[in-house]
Amino acid sequence: MEITLGQVLALLGAAMAVFLPGIGSARGVGMVGEAAAGVVTEDPSKFSQTLILQALPGTQGIYGLLTGFVVMQRIGLLGGNLLPLTTYQGLLVFAACLPIAVVGLLSAISQARAAAAGVGIVAKRPEELAKGITYAAMVETYAVLALLASILMLFGLRLS
């Protein structure tokens, strides 16, 4: 079977959707983890509370994987019959991946900053955990919207 440029572009899009938010989440979770480790060194009882905050910037990576998976499914990679995409079709898929790829990367890091500040809240006033979570979750909205845009575009494309 011949490989088309369209297929390459589509896969490139899927790859970007996975690795960019993945990088963002990895950095973000790492950042919050560092701050959390600092708190737990002095006060081990705060482990579960800080763990929740650490998990928050991890979702972007999951959204990215999800988008990548939808691409693979749509272009038939998972079923074993890779569709013979034209260059334009490939570009369309690539474009559809951009929202979550870019927003995922940046929002994960911004969210991590908010969550790391939330760790500071937990250190001083553990009863206010919910507020720390809410501040961080406000950032995630934009990752969710980007994910939605990417997925709706992918479902809307006619590829066969």
Binding site: E34, G38, V39, V119, G120
Partner: peptide, 8 residues
């Protein structure tokens, strides 16, 4: 990390 510790 240091800030986390310091906050406690």
């Amino acid at each position: 990390y240091a800030s986390g510790r310091v906050k406690v």
